[in-house]
Design a protein around this nucleic acid. Structure first.
Length: 486
RNA sequence: GGCGCGUUCGUCUAGUGGCUUAGGACGCCGCCCUCUCAAGGCGGAGAUCACGGGUUCAAAUCCCGUACGCGCUACCA
């Protein structure tokens, strides 16, 4: 086999949502495939019946599609190495377990859960490593047949040799070694006939011609078991790459208890898929330069496994937010427009309609002031309804005794402008009013902003005027004069 | 407890023996710009490169030890 097409896989167990750590693993697999003209496969590791969650797979696929990590083969789009659900491959695992059984590289274990618990407790008491004692390995052929005919439940265990060094190479960790004494006789087939991850993953990876196993570091400790299986079957081992973990602020493995871990949570909070991808890509990888802003297609170009870090990375939402800001700023207006309309439909303004042309102006004026689409509404509600209150602090600071009369004059001079007066025309009118009333422009600008928006912050005041339009501006000025009392 | 992996500013990281008085980014602080807020520009605080030994003319970079952290230790993945 010379230069086979690289084939990698993302193999999540369907727990109900896509974990951000899973997203990172999926992304690195995807990027590796793209970068090497390889194939990216999605395989569902649903061999634990106790953990079955209704709709989990559908949700997982939906989320993966949302972020744009399209796979070449998978449960819903087929491929020549299916099925891609492990629960549909039970016969394959059984057949392979049988081979191991015949070789003597696996054996049936009839021990009861009670005995195993007892064993573990005893080992713990003497501070010994918790490990199966190979009790059932020494059963005679007759004893096994006897128990089989009695229909006693059994599992199939991996027969780990003694006094061997099990070693393998890892792209990220380099050479790793384990003494076989420290490796447990792992259960390969459970008593319900389902395989464990260890067997299923090795069999499938081989059958699906996976060339590179890129997965989280939590699997490093069980890799010797997998390596043993490859060797027992006489199969070529894939290249292993164990990714550093994503961490909570306290450096423990990223978990639900300490904040959001589901990609869906971040999506619902308004994070863009572009930002999420960019952020997660940088958690454990960089191109060796100072670049931090990437689009997915650029990551595809630059990503390489050998630039992946060894140590875990804390998931820092503040930096994610900054990237969200950056990506939102780069997004074409038409796309932001669609997102903004969605957001409006979810807001209290859902009953109202706004012209695209109007919303585009709003977007342009607020671009540099928002990190999230919903902030267009939160930070500048005055574009969607007239202010119903005026920020008291700003009133205190900017609304002077002469403000009503000045604004009245200003409204008068605005009324002489065109209905679609330009920024310059508004500016000229304001300056002229200031001059004629012998007042500084600031004495007009600040109360004007307050009157028109109810706030003290926002886009340039003339932008505000143009977007709202002459008539609306005049109306708001009059309302403010009535409502603001000092 | 055992085994494995890791350890550079608060966080993400650059660094692969001399270019390093350890660089960038987020966040924080200040100044400039300015009608406000942002954006932008400039600057600042912030890392005795976990610690201790070696190797070397020279170490964040190589080796050994220690400490600490994390992961695994299920008929879960």
């Amino acid at each position: 086999m010379i230069n086979p097409v690289p084939r990698v896989r993302f193999a999540p167990s369907p727990t109900g949502y896509l974990h951000v750590g899973g997203l990172r693993t999926a992304l690195y697999n995807y990027l590796f495939a793209k970068n090497n003209n390889g194939k990216f496969i999605l395989r569902i590791e649903d061999t634990d019946r106790n953990r079955y969650v209704e709709g989990a797979v559908e949700n997982l696929i939906k989320t993966l599609k949302w972020v744009g990590l399209n796979y070449d083969e998978g449960p819903d789009n087929g491929g020549e190495y299916g099925p891609y659900y492990q629960s549909q491959r039970l016969d394959i695992y059984k057949a392979h377990a049988k081979i191991l059984l015949e070789q003597g590289n696996a054996y049936r274990c009839f021990c009861t859960p009670e005995r195993l618990t007892l064993l573990r407790e005893e080992q713990q008491k003497v501070k010994l490593q918790g490990k199966y004692d190979k009790h059932c390995l020494h059963l005679t052929h007759e004893e096994v047949e006897q128990k089989l005919s009695e229909k006693i439940l059994f599992v199939v265990r991996l027969n780990v040799p003694s006094e061997k060094i099990i070693s393998f190479d890892d792209v990220i960790r380099e050479h790793v070694e384990f003494a076989s004494e420290t490796v447990d006789d792992q259960v390969l087939i459970k008593s319900d006939g389902y395989p464990t991850y260890h067997l299923a993953n090795v069999v499938d990876d081989h059958l699906m011609k996976i060339t590179h196993v890129i997965r989280g570091e939590e699997w490093l400790s069980s890799t010797p078991k997998h390596v043993l299986l490859y060797d027992y079957f006489g199969w070529v081992r894939p290249v292993f790459a164990h990714l550093p973990l994503l961490l909570n602020a306290d450096k423990s493995k990223l978990s639900k208890r300490q904040g959001d871990v589901a990609v869906e949570d971040y999506r619902d909070k308004g994070f863009l898929k572009e930002a999420l991808i960019n952020f997660v890509a940088l958690l454990g990888w960089n191109a060796g330069d100072d670049r931090e802003y990437y689009k997915l297609n650029e990551l595809e170009k630059y990503f390489s496994l050998d630039r992946v870090n060894k140590s875990g990375a804390v998931f820092n939402v503040e930096k994610l937010s900054w990237l969200n800001f950056e990506h939102l700023r780069q997004k074409p207006v038409e796309e932001v427009l669609v997102l903004l309309k969605d957001e409006l439909n979810k807001s209290k303004f859902s009953g109202k309609t706004y012209k695209d042309e109007y919303l585009i102006q709003v977007i342009a004026s607020m671009r540099e002031r928002v990190s999230f689409v919903k902030e267009y509404i939160e930070k500048s509600p005055y574009f969607f309804e007239e202010p119903d209150e005026y920020d008291p602090d700003v009133v205190k600071k900017r609304w002077k005794e002469d403000s009503p009369i000045l604004l009245k004059t200003l409204a008068g001079s605005f009324s002489l402008l065109n209905e679609n007066a330009s920024k310059e025309e508004f500016e000229q009118a304001l300056h002229k009013t200031a001059e004629e009333s012998n007042s500084a422009v600031g004495k007009l600008i600040h109360p004007l902003r307050l009157a028109v928006s109810g706030m003290g912050v926002g886009p340039g005041v003339y932008d505000l005027l143009v977007i709202l339009g002459r008539d609306e501006v005049i109306r708001r000025i009059n309302t403010a004069i009535e409502k603001i009392n000092i």
